[in-house]
Design a protein around this nucleic acid. Sequence first.
DNA 1: GATGAATGAGAGTTCATTCAT
DNA 2: CATGAATGAACTCTCATTCAT
Lengths: 204, 204, 204, 204
Amino acid sequence: MERNAERTKANILTAAVAEFSEKGYAGARVDAIAKMAGCNKGMIYQYYESKERLYESVIAYEYQTLSKLEAEIIQQYTDPGELIDAIVDKYFDFLLAHPDFVKIIMWENLNEGRSVKASSTLQNVKAPILECIREAVRKGRADGIFKETASSKAVAFALITGAFSYFSNCHTLPVILNVDLRDSDFLVSHKEIVKSGIRSYLKK
Amino acid sequence: MERNAERTKANILTAAVAEFSEKGYAGARVDAIAKMAGCNKGMIYQYYESKERLYESVIAYEYQTLSKLEAEIIQQYTDPGELIDAIVDKYFDFLLAHPDFVKIIMWENLNEGRSVKASSTLQNVKAPILECIREAVRKGRADGIFKETASSKAVAFALITGAFSYFSNCHTLPVILNVDLRDSDFLVSHKEIVKSGIRSYLKK
Amino acid sequence: MERNAERTKANILTAAVAEFSEKGYAGARVDAIAKMAGCNKGMIYQYYESKERLYESVIAYEYQTLSKLEAEIIQQYTDPGELIDAIVDKYFDFLLAHPDFVKIIMWENLNEGRSVKASSTLQNVKAPILECIREAVRKGRADGIFKETASSKAVAFALITGAFSYFSNCHTLPVILNVDLRDSDFLVSHKEIVKSGIRSYLKK
Amino acid sequence: MERNAERTKANILTAAVAEFSEKGYAGARVDAIAKMAGCNKGMIYQYYESKERLYESVIAYEYQTLSKLEAEIIQQYTDPGELIDAIVDKYFDFLLAHPDFVKIIMWENLNEGRSVKASSTLQNVKAPILECIREAVRKGRADGIFKETASSKAVAFALITGAFSYFSNCHTLPVILNVDLRDSDFLVSHKEIVKSGIRSYLKK
DNA sequence: GATGAATGAGAGTTCATTCAT
DNA sequence: CATGAATGAACTCTCATTCAT
């Protein structure tokens, strides 16, 4: 049996992400995490001190994935409106690729954001996407395309929730509405609604 | 001590709504529910059989509150566009007034909608708001105001998630964006974005 | 199976006295206490909240046995010197009859008296024997038999430790000295040394 | 990192003395000992085989400190009574200087002397102080100063417990009696009681 | 000789559920 | 109908001990 602290610690975190995002804090089982990580419970307590702390590490880890959403797109667009559209697309893609992130954020919201509020690290997490949005709005106003009173916060909120809710409400609404979220036409329609809502808001 | 089956059963449900919406299924405690309901645990098992069944009763109960969102508004508007706007307002008001509903829906989404999917009752729950939306879209198309390809499902999805996410993301995004959701200006802006997104989508 | 909260609670305490006096706090096992008490661990936590609190209850209980050492002897003696002698005998008898008390006091001393110091109840425990000693010294001084500078505290300390150490050192010293503490001659000799030490101290 | 078997072994013992005397066998932690000793747990198991054996080594070590209580004083006194007094003083001083010894003896008493009884080494430990006492009593009887029936064991027992209990009961009795054992007047009084008790016992 | 990662048995504690009263 | 004492399985966490490096 190979001994490798780094790897074991990483395995535990990976397993914890899976377990916590699947079951939430209360529903998650330390035993299950140990089993998934291929180690025993003692290791978890050695490296993460407690279930609580491990959970916090998971939150922090997931928030960090958000900061990897690169901001390069900003250079690709000269038109601020197109830039906003591109950000919407980008964020939809990101959430689609990171279902754990979606779930963890949901758990945190139900948990009333205790971990987020408690941790200055999390509050100061770099979110390039926010910078992107801010910059797009600023540019649009400078160019005289967007109205002067447009708030980048309102845009960010609408953009993020518009994308997020497509994934966070994926188990109840579709049942009631009898729709299939994997249907790309439906996705395109929804994106279009989000984009045009923001566009209207920004328009002079 | 008064003996009253009806009342005891109702007290338990009320307490369960509070406990489950606050803590979720795994985090909820049968003891806490009994205490809140002013009865003992035996009663809970007598009336609801198990924690699981009680949870399902809570889900069903909350879905029913949704069906109380009256549909009378439909008569008040001749213009389909205005009607849609009114429905948005109505739904925001409803969610604001029913925080437990918001939370329960979130728990169910994290629970992958197991209860919703398992229960035909829940799938067939009457949601007058959906009827409303459907009717508004139908009327708009009939009047030649909305485009023929407009799907009432897309509208319903955007409308419901647009409102819902204002309340469901209330503990994480505001921290990161540094905004106050109770600020009525912010609320008005967000509603406007949702409304105009839908309007654009529907427009011919 | 009979259900009786009072009795179960009492059984737990009795079992806890045995377990804690035998093994000390760290060595005691909640499982063992439950088994001895003829109940399951849940009951212990329902009635005593935690191992720690249960231990404190045991300490308090043992201290109370001390307060049952009645003070009636005081009336039986007119001579203060004889009274002191009688108290010595009485306390030896008490300790002989209460081996759990001896052990608990020893654990507390090793525990640096944390429970005693933490609890105002314990500090204010009625110890009639102390009153007795105080009264005897006072009377002896008033009668002109004891010296004026005699301190009842010094007497109490010598008396109590003189008796206590006969039982608290019963497993090491006898081995080294090769003596048998159950030998009544040895006991009489030791009592005599304690008594005459105090008598000398008090003598004018 | 220096490799030094002797030194590591000694460090472990020193750390173990501290840990075991502070917490007792059950409360002591092997981890804590390793940390204190500046080594890792493997070393402890290499040199001492088990927690149990290490504990026994600690007991043995502490008993040996007792044998260092030199017996030279015997030459300094021609009067056996004075010699006894000197031994009392000496033993008080020894215990004051060796708090770990006091505690270990107490743990062993609570442990019902298992280690002492199990080990022939410990039973045969040289205790010069006992020799001293024996010699003093012998001499006093030979000189016709002490009574013929005087037993050196009774003297030893009274002397040792008289001194020992001043330190072993230092956390409970003082609280109840409201006295300060560091007050030198109180110490002198107590010593005097112990000495005069023995003196009376020995007197013809 | 030395390290500290890893183990597994077992400790304290919680909780859904049952059942005598 | 109602109570809350009792149960036992399962949970979080600890710790003496081993072993690959």
